[in-house]
Design a protein around this nucleic acid. Structure first.
Length: 212
DNA sequence: AGATGGATCGTCT
DNA sequence: GACGATCCATCTG
């Protein structure tokens, strides 16, 4: 019988990066932190396609200690800093192929009060952005970067917990002046979910949150 | 409701 | 020394 890390590995290496980015919507992340259990459903992702992708940290083969997790096996956590905040990618494809998926939005399930305290915000604003949910989860350093999902206290459920009614595809956020890479629709969101970043109120579906 | 600019710091040149 | 895969406050209409 295959163990959980091997299955996790397989999950992040057996499909195209774009298919995996879509598939991750509706899966649950859980962090057993020293504040308690914090968990949420992924509602927004972005795909970054490695050396060819002008918007990727691994563009042109850039490789440093900081972005090395992108080069590791699928399912490796990559945390990087941006303007004094932290974002998290999951590395996809086999070791040596530096593709990644940025997790941009999470709908809280467990520990919402702790998240609001960590963020000093309430409601949708608590976790509706890549750096927001990281801070909500109480992650304040890069200790997890380079470790595997499901190997310790940060887990990703391999079975989907909720199914989106519709997945909307849009250009990625914060990618200006990168030619075709600026326009490619590689951001995937659960249509209508209020925890998606930059959601307009009029586009929110507050009855179903966009789930089937 | 949508656009704009400042804050702020790790990372790379 | 410059630059963000960001966030937030503060305009303006």
């Amino acid at each position: 019988m295959r163990d959980i890390v091997t299955e996790t590995n397989h999950f992040f290496q057996s499909k195209s990066t774009i298919d995996t980015a879509k598939e991750m919507l509706g899966h649950v992340l859980t962090y057993q932190s020293d504040q308690g259990t914090l968990s949420g459903v992924i509602v927004e992702t972005e795909a970054y396609l490695g050396p060819d992708d002008m918007a990727a940290h691994s563009y042109g083969g850039r490789h440093s200690d900081a972005n090395d997790p992108l080069y590791q096996q699928g399912g490796t956590i990559y945390i990087y800093s941006i303007h004094s905040w932290l974002d998290m990618d999951i590395s996809v494809q086999e070791k040596g192929l530096p593709n990644g998926i940025l997790i941009r939005g999470v709908q809280p399930i467990t520990g919402q009060e702790i998240m609001e305290e960590n963020r000093k915000k309430t409601g949708f604003d608590t976790t509706n952005g890549p750096a927001k949910w990281i801070r909500a989860f109480g992650i304040t350093d890069k200790e997890l970067s380079g470790t595997m999902l499901n190997s310790d206290n940060f887990t990703f459920e391999l079975k989907k917990s909720k199914t989106p009614k519709n997945i909307l595809e849009t250009p990625r956020v914060g990618v200006p002046n990168k030619g075709e890479w600026t326009d490619k629709k590689m951001r995937f969101i659960v249509e209508g979910n209020p925890y998606v970043s930059k959601m307009y109120k009029r586009d929110m579906d507050l009855d179903t949150f966009g789930w089937q």
